[in-house]
Design a protein around this nucleic acid. Structure first.
Lengths: 160, 160
DNA sequence: TATTGTTATACTCTATAACTATA
DNA sequence: TATAGTTATAGAGTATAACAATA
């Protein structure tokens, strides 16, 4: 379809040159499709713990970002506070997180992971990483280097 | 955090060399996080049409892959037939798709997009592409070349 | 009075089970 | 008898509105 489809490294000058000539919208469209498709595939590799995607996502935030308030969690997951409250209730029932009053502000509630909660997050991460690592292993060193460089760029795009 | 985080091009030998030395699991983990985050961001850029994510996704399949049966659509979206049936009902009510009996098998139903349905798909695609193109425009030519090469690789990973 | 969390209620998406029509 | 679609019903996730407690 495009020049870029015929090569797998960024190190050949021809690839870089042809990429510069292509319209941004076209390049972006292809990148978007590839990213969305891979994300969908990665999402399917989840832990055996019986947690929904939203519960797992909230749990990961709590595990990584330390104690968080309901409001902050809702903000991170882009849902309303009542929705997040319900999600946290499920996680509490499962024993993966605990609620605790904030020492400095009586209105706030701090949610933290329990050890089993952290274990679920680790296990899920391990599974997804294993799936991806298996596929990365089939690539050439040059392709892996390209992906490594692209990772940094993608991270920048997403954070804007 | 890692060597790759300190550069944004794949053309410097040091970046490629350091990438080769890194464990696959670690590189995969970073790539996974970047991909998931960007996908989430892209998903937020949707059309003004009042369609849910699942309706929009099904509509896109129908628009691109031509007339599809309920069963095939359910398979593509990885949901059950009753779920997809309901989604299709909503799309029919909105006037974005139409049902038609299959000429060769009376049990099957073929779902096709209407012109307004196609327009919604185009508009949504345009919006997402615009968001990404705006950000691609801020990158160096080298970074864009890296992303172009990475797109091809990512596509291969997702299709496995 | 504003903010944080919670409860009440309703709507959407999805699933399983059961049913109809066709092959 | 098997397959494609549909209907009935239930459970999970999310939203808005209203309420309680604290700043």
């Amino acid at each position: 379809m495009t020049d870029a489809a015929e090569t797998t490294t960024a190190e050949r000058p021809t690839a870089a040159a042809s990429a510069r000539r292509r319209p941004l919208a076209e390049q972006g469209s292809e990148l978007r499709i590839a990213v969305m498709r891979l994300a969908r595939r990665l999402r399917q590799e989840r832990s055996e713990a019986e947690l929904s995607a939203s519960q797992l996502s909230a749990l990961a935030w709590i595990s990584v970002e330390g104690p968080l308030t309901i409001g902050r969690l809702a903000e991170l997951e882009r849902v309303t506070a009542p929705s997040m409250n319900r999600t946290v209730n499920c996680l509490v029932d499962s024993g993966y997180v605990v609620r605790a009053g904030s020492p400095d502000d009586g209105r706030k509630v701090l949610v933290s992971t329990t050890e089993p909660g952290d274990a679920v997050v680790r296990e899920t991460r391990r599974r997804r990483d294993a799936w991806l690592a298996k596929r990365l292993a089939t690539l050439s060193a040059e392709d892996r280097a390209t992906l490594a460089a692209a990772t940094t760029i993608l991270r920048g795009l997403a954070s804007q």
